[in-house]
């Protein structure tokens, strides 16, 4: 250790002048301030703005309009479609990512060799820059040279290439598939990690107790993983509902709002239509949903720590 007595003296003299009760909070202050200013304060700001008719380019001319923005959300069929899209997105995307991810994690753990290398490769879709992953899918779903069109033709599903990303009926689905591709590896990794955490002796004890492989899975694996699965489930919901890049890169939420979910709608309302008030009101809906998910996330998290 090479520290000077000088430095030590100055540490001491400064720290001695600060009362003990305050000193504890000092190291926590910067993070709290940062999070408070850039994450918590904006939420308050959003609540405030949602009561105004506010133009992005002329914020000083904001006009208080009470609950008019919320009334707009309540009555506007376009926004209803966006909320409906969001629901489909979250339900379909999350459940597919969970099923697929669980399968992947299980296969990696039980059936495949080189688990650590294989899991690193499998994780690539999740860590790849969002824009890169989304562009690949945009290319693959392309209407003129897309490999997926070719694949569907070869399989006899369609007769000729169709425009999927620009179709009002179909455009919601390609981004969901891209998102499943991005999220399933994450769920696979969570699954793999929790499977690896289960004591091998439990399986041996169960085998001694006459349990078939299926019963071992049903009575040991699943119950042992229940909190981890719950955390993974909530993470899937959260990542799906707040996703922006997959849709924005592939379809920009269009055509119309056919592939828009809440985050894309917020972006378009604020930065294309410049309607900050309505965008804030929409943000608040998203925020409340996330708050509910976070609440359950923290609940599960506390249980994990309390139980094991």
């Amino acid at each position: 250790m090479s520290y000077s007595k000088q430095a030590r003296g100055s540490f001491e003299s400064v720290s001695e002048r600060i009362p003990e009760g305050v000193k504890v909070y000092l190291p926590i202050l910067p993070v709290t301030a940062l999070v408070g200013l850039f994450i918590l304060y904006p939420i308050a700001q959003a609540i405030y703005s949602s009561f105004f008719n506010k133009d992005l380019l002329a914020p000083s001319e904001a006009e208080f309009i009470g609950l008019a923005n919320y009334a707009e959300i309540w009555s506007n069929p376009t926004i209803h479609q966006v909320l409906w899209n969001t629901l489909i997105w979250v339900v379909v995307g999350s459940s597919a990512a969970i099923v697929l991810g669980f399968l992947m994690g299980w296969l990696l753990h039980e059936k495949l060799p080189y688990t650590s290398v294989a899991s690193a490769i499998v994780l690539i879709p999740w860590v790849l820059p969002r824009v890169v992953g989304a562009s690949i899918w945009q290319f693959m779903f392309g209407g003129s040279q897309g490999i997926i069109n070719e694949l569907l033709v070869q399989l006899g599903v369609i007769d000729e290439y169709i425009v999927m990303l620009g179709s009002t009926e179909l455009s919601l689905w390609p981004p969901i598939i891209g998102m499943i591709w991005r999220l399933a590896p994450l769920f696979a990794l969570l699954t793999l990690t929790s499977l690896q955490g289960i004591d091998e002796h439990l399986y041996e004890a169960a085998r001694m107790d006459g349990a078939t492989p299926w019963e071992q899975f049903r009575f040991i694996t699943i119950p042992m993983m229940r909190y981890n699965l719950a955390i993974g489930f909530l993470l899937m919901l959260i990542y799906n509902i707040r996703n922006f890049s997959m849709i924005w890169v592939m379809t920009k939420g269009g055509p119309g709002v056919s592939s828009s979910t809440l985050p894309v709608m917020i972006y378009r309302t604020a930065f294309v239509d410049f309607d900050v008030g309505l965008a804030s009101a929409l943000s608040l809906i998203l925020f409340i949903v996330l708050l509910v998910f976070s609440y359950y996330y923290i609940q599960v998290y506390d249980q994990v720590r309390g139980d094991v």
Partner: peptide, 30 residues
């Protein structure tokens, strides 16, 4: 013959009790 069909019972060094089951369920599982 697989372990589960041999009708033998084992006591493990780390006990290997099923942590998510009560004592009653642990005893009754087999």
């Amino acid at each position: 013959i697989k372990a589960r069909n041999r009708d033998v019972a084992m006591v493990f060094q780390d006990f290997a009790l099923y942590p998510h089951m009560t004592v009653r369920e642990n005893l009754g599982f087999g």
